[in-house]
Amino acid sequence: MPRRRLIYVPFWATYVFLYTPIIVLVVMSFNAGKSPYVFEGLSLKWYGELAGNDTIRQGLVNTLIVAVGTTVLSTVLGTLLAVGMARHTRSRLLDALGLLPAVLPDLVLAIGLLVFYATIKMTLGLHSVILAHTVFGMAFVAAVVRTRLTHADTSLEEASRDLGASPLATFTRITLPTLAPGIAAGALLAFTLSIDEFVIAFFTAAPTEPTLPIVIYSMVRFGVTPEINALATILLAVSFTVIIVAQRMTRLTESLS
């Protein structure tokens, strides 16, 4: 029936649209020549150049530090917040506050923090980016963990409380283990969001400590060498691996729980 097939046109168009640029990037990263348009033969030379690029390496190190810091902070604060919001309050206002960082345009958050840091005269550095990223990192961890909490069975917690366990014991022995997959997913989310975040880092990083997206931004502005394509390809490969591993892990944890 032609009408049925018609709906497949936008479906396939979506994937062509999403993947054409990426295929071009990957192919061009193996280009022997410098032109971004003409393929002049297979070569790994841009990967070599990339390995020798100190600015990119430094950016990568900074990004990883920021992402790890953000993940740790966001996971702890976000999990507590999620449990607190689900079990210890019914305030709609708090709900809204918890979600605000997720719906606020990043530019608005970025200038807010820039103004704030300037007002308290805080010296910028990687710590200022970590603090900034945690604002939204925490919100996303809280959101993911809450989804899990809402579906979780509360009878165990109630039983624990009825049997006289302290709130802390109930939390560490019962709630946390139930939430583990949600927390892991939230942490991974905070990590990946932080790694690719540009706008907030752009406004809150010290000029001496740019994160990788900032380095890439200044490189793109100066016209791009195929080094950038090589970098994109590597990021893509790493991400792909992470996705596969994450999928396996969730399946594993789900089958265990």
Binding site: T20, P21, L25, D196, I216, L231, A232, F240
Partner: peptide
């Protein structure tokens, strides 16, 4: 999962 800026740049090439 690959950098946002790089993906945008790809459109210039295209």
């Amino acid at each position: 999962w690959t950098n946002f800026l790089i993906r945008v740049y790809a459109w210039i090439i295209l």
